[in-house]
Design a protein around this nucleic acid. Structure first.
Lengths: 245, 245, 245, 245
DNA sequence: AATGAATGAGCGTTCATTCAT
DNA sequence: GATGAATGAACGCTCATTCAT
């Protein structure tokens, strides 16, 4: 067993190595700058060896997306452990998303690409299922918090879909906003007078939740203070690294 | 004058032909599936001829993006002519966006790509300015409606950036939601119980505006009826075509 | 007759215009940078019109070469009018060559190209004969001076080919030296300690003529002074323009 | 070791194959006639394979130029081993040049092209240095022989640059003469009565050296006999092959 | 006579993938 | 299992030349 296990470990390590090199290439040079030749040169193994781990280029991309999704889920779940009222814990998830986008911008770049037909078409069923499972986890964190809010009487709704509605609303708003900001194709400062899009996103999150009547309303509660506490209590390391960079 | 005009007309028509073929290729096969050879084969002119209209592949893409942006602006401006209270007219802009995404899904696909560094880098200054001017028009429609709302006392705000905040909030939410839905990378029905993401988007729009305290609140006013009226009074043709498809 | 003549004059002028634009392009951007499109854009006539003057790109090149050859012949013939001993007049031809290469470097660049099979193959017999006639003139200047030298008893030879031998020797040496210097592919200063290749060429000219025993030998006569006088008496304008540049 | 060595040998052989095919294309059809497609078709490997040996077309050309320069250096160095007086050994270098131009006319054609900015610009520093080193070797053979001549008292000069002057003089004369002859753009026989330009070049070499006063003068010594002996003693194989062709 | 839109063969180059060793 | 040489289809782009108007 010893040998086999070591071999398996080596294989897993090499897989990680391939993915980390591929991510760096993606970040630095974009999707077209990620080539099998460059990956092979960087990992100091041959191209053939890469194909023993990933059956095609797209599978590498899926591997990256999986790591990104895992990271997101982990951060979301940690955010939900914050000790506070449900809406505060949901604000914490917003902090997690902010950290993800700013501390690991590569991950966000990859999550974008994976939403493309031409790439998804080449992925195996298994890989797709894996990715979905991960996203499922993220969604469950949010819908769970909405239900916690309902259980505590902070939010009332008749439509049983409301948790999903809110989850989708927050997700789409964050995804859209981060995409627009990341692209840099619109000069938000000049055109919209928006200097810090994260702050705007934060405000719109809360206006949306206010719209759903979720207590305490942002007009009555200092969610900036909540963010502060989440940063200190749940993500001290991440915040430090982000400040340092 | 006759001859010259006919030639010029032919040229303009061919430019449109190139763009329409290119758009279809983009939609069907993605950016990498859009090749000069395929366009040439489809339009039944030679590749050289294409290059007399567009200096490089990216310029074709910009041409597509421009058409899309123009269309969006036109629809937005028409929506704003709806006779009703400001928030109703803003709801009309939502209708315009919905029509755009559903009646011309290709346009949305292209608006995504143009937000990419590697593509923008190859565009001429002139083309970029053209594109920005168009987007500026769309933004102004929305911020204008917010200010109309304030003028009529339907919404109150101290922060002068509020119109921009709302514009960005609606834009990012719509952009994100449409992107997620278009990609098909998440089975919204199965995973979130969301059968009609447009309806969800509609609800979240209004929850957001409710959150900003914009009267009349969606809990007190039937904005579905407003949508109905906008469809009938401002976009009767578009709605008919959408139903037919 | 008036109209026709005016037309002919216009045609000749346009031909000159085409050639001057083509020469500039050749100089600035090399043979591959000379394209019919660029020429057409520059002369503000259409490409079709160019083809009414020149049947193909190579014919334009031949036109340039002809102008260059004409210029060379003219300068050589003027040099031969210098009042001095035959060998001094031959030194004057050296001055003419130096002026040509330095005052009109474009001409030299073109003379190089025209010695290429792939280009000559596309030229008409007529054009080729025209070019040869011009070069013939240059050669005759030199062989004529050698015969003058013999007639005056400054040089003696039995072999009747000697004038041609000397002409070829000077020509090949000048052509080779100017080519090497123009290419800049060898750092003459660093590799050979040659700062001024024109001066070296001058010295080698005279060593060659000394080798043929042509009186007065360069060891006995100050040919630098001859050069000075030729410059002042035959080429005052050219020298001034060269100094100014 | 066997396997590896065989592979490496195959690769080296293929590199030679590419170069020899490329040289033939260059000779037959000129630089523009040398295309990657033709090379690939001729060597019966794919275009991709060529790019594993040479990163661009220009690098192939540099490869050819290097081979040519190496060959020249080798022949020059062998010529300098001839047992005779320094000027005789220099005459031997003339024989080497003659053999090079006539036995390997392709090499000469390539040496011409490599003196072009547009080509040199695409070469790596390393390749350029390699080429220069080779040319340096050729030059040193000649300047070395001049200094030998001075050491033996056969030639006297005050100017320390004299060896470089003579080297440049011979080089430029040979380069120019071979270029003119190779181009075929001038009918030397008809226009100049020159049937054998090599013989003319030989005579002008010696007139130049006579002009420098290098003993024994060509009027006092039978350098044709020297050439004969060099051919027999130093280049017997080459002469035989040249006769056979 | 003048135009310039149209051509189309051709170019150098790239890169995911395969497979003999 | 690991290699990397070989592949070859595909790519974006160029430009001398033609010819209907």
């Amino acid at each position: 067993m010893g040998t086999l296990t070591r071999k398996q470990r080596e294989i897993a390590e090499r897989e990680d190595l391939i993915l980390s090199v591929a991510r760096q290439l993606m970040v630095d040079q974009g999707y077209l700058g990620l080539t099998m030749d460059k990956v092979a040169a960087e990992i100091e193994y041959s191209k053939g060896t890469i194909y023993q781990h990933f059956s095609c280029k797209e599978e590498i991309l899926a591997g990256l997306a999986y790591e990104s999704a895992e990271l997101r889920r982990e951060l979301f779940e940690r955010a939900a452990t914050f000790r506070g009222r449900p809406r505060e814990r949901l604000a914490g998830v917003g902090v997690a998303d902010h950290l993800l986008v700013n501390l690991y911008p590569q991950h966000f770049a990859i999550e974008r690409l994976i939403h493309t037909h031409s790439i998804r078409d080449k992925l195996s069923e298994k890989r797709l299922a894996q990715l979905e499972a991960c996203n499922e986890g993220c969604k469950n964190v949010i819908t769970g918090l909405v239900r916690d809010g309902a259980a505590q009487g902070d939010i009332e709704y008749d439509d049983p879909q409301t948790p999903a509605l809110i989850a989708f609303g927050l997700w789409s708003m964050a995804f859209g906003a981060n995409l627009i900001a990341a692209a840099g194709s619109v000069d938000l400062e000049e055109k919209l007078g928006i200097a810090d899009h994260s702050e705007v996103l934060f405000q719109n999150y809360h206006r949306l939740l206010d719209g759903y009547g979720w207590q305490p309303l942002s007009t009555e509660w200092d969610y900036h203070a909540t963010v502060q506490r989440v940063q200190e209590e749940v993500f001290p390391d991440e915040v430090r690294r982000l400040s340092a960079s």
